[in-house]
């Protein structure tokens, strides 16, 4: 499992190809349990690559985040490929981008890393507070082992894994050019318990729940920036004419912002949980996005990012879609 030798060998081989621009993987962060994205262009740099329970970043974001400068006259556009390391959830983001034709299949090389779940930093830092030295981690038979300065500490995986991983149904890459090691078994069957719990409450309770979170939002747009599906060149949030959402920070605009973003992810959110991970004020954004994921799955039998040949949900229809709410 998580054979780093193999990972680095494949990475070396891939970046040495002439038709590859760079490879995106993970490397040890600067301190504590942090992990950084690692962009490599030279084979020697591949030795820094890692894959561990700390690699929670979804690197698919970088496929569309890259700035596309206009090509100077007389020059050919750079058509070299970008190699990308993906976990199961990240691969769904790539597939959904392919479905929406945000990227081209021939412009990416997908290196699949079947994944046994990544940690939630908040949970880990609660267990091991104020760790400043670089920490390594690995999976070990239902446990996650952290290599701290005082020795190795094994923690049951349920205690530190991110919520999205505990209910993960796609631990293996949906599509990959190279699969680094054998697939792992999906053990969970997601029943949307968190969404159901909130749905069961009275409307006033639901509003006060969201009102408290929405009013704490500082509108840093981290959720949008980290989201692999938020790649519109002209985002409604940046637009002034028409102004869809005003820039003032108050409950009215914040609610409109969050609902607009959730709606724009309807039938597209692949539940990688990045928005929730980066939110500086800990808004449970996945609880909002997962509501729509649930409805999409139940009402339209559609799951984003699982089938590269499907059509986007909101760009297709069935004549017999249910319409029991229509007067």
């Amino acid at each position: 499992m998580a054979d780093l030798e193999k990972l680095r060998a494949v990475a070396k081989e891939t970046v040495s190809r002439d038709d590859v621009k760079y490879l995106i993987g993970w490397r040890q962060g600067t301190y504590g349990f942090r992990v950084s994205p690692h962009f490599i262009t030279e084979p020697e740099e591949a030795d820094k690559l890692i894959f561990s329970p700390l690699c929670s970043n979804n690197l698919a974001t970088y496929l569309t985040l890259v700035e596309k400068l206009p090509v100077p006259r007389g020059q050919e556009p750079d058509t070299r490929k970008i190699a990308l390391m993906v976990k199961g959830c990240d691969s769904r983001a790539v597939v959904q981008q392919l479905v929406e034709q945000g990227i081209k299949r021939e412009s990416v090389i997908i290196i699949g890393c079947p994944c046994q779940g990544v940690v939630d930093l908040a949970k880990v830092e609660e267990k091991f507070p104020a760790v400043l030295e670089q920490v390594e981690a690995r999976w070990d038979d239902g446990k996650i082992v952290f290599k701290l300065s005082e020795g190795e500490k094994a923690v049951p995986r349920e205690e530190v894994l991110a919520d999205k991983c505990l209910r993960c149904r796609y631990p293996n890459p949906v599509t990959a050019d190279t699969l680094l090691w054998e697939k792992v078994e999906a053990e969970s069957n997601d029943e949307y318990a968190d969404v159901g719990e909130l749905e069961g409450k009275a409307p006033e309770e639901r509003w006060s729940f969201w009102e408290a979170y929405f009013s704490s939002c500082i509108r840093c747009y981290s959720c949008r920036n980290v989201c692999p599906m938020c790649y519109c060149e002209d985002c409604i949030l940046d637009r002034l004419n028409p102004t869809w959402v005003n820039r003032s920070n108050n409950i009215s605009e914040n609610t409109a912002f969050h609902l607009a973003r959730a709606f724009h992810l309807a039938g597209r959110c692949i539940e990688c949980g990045e928005c929730e991970r980066v939110c500086p004020v800990n808004i449970p954004l996945m609880k909002l996005n997962r509501k729509l994921t649930k409805e999409v799955r139940e009402k339209f039998e559609y799951e984003p990012g699982t089938d590269p040949d499907s059509k986007p949900l909101q760009a297709s229809y069935r004549p017999n879609d249910q319409e029991n709410f229509i007067l």
Partner: peptide, 13 residues
């Protein structure tokens, strides 16, 4: 369909 579900979910009647 989705917008109605979303509004209802955040507590709009």
């Amino acid at each position: 369909t989705l917008m109605k579900d979303l509004l209802e979910y955040v507590g709009v009647d």
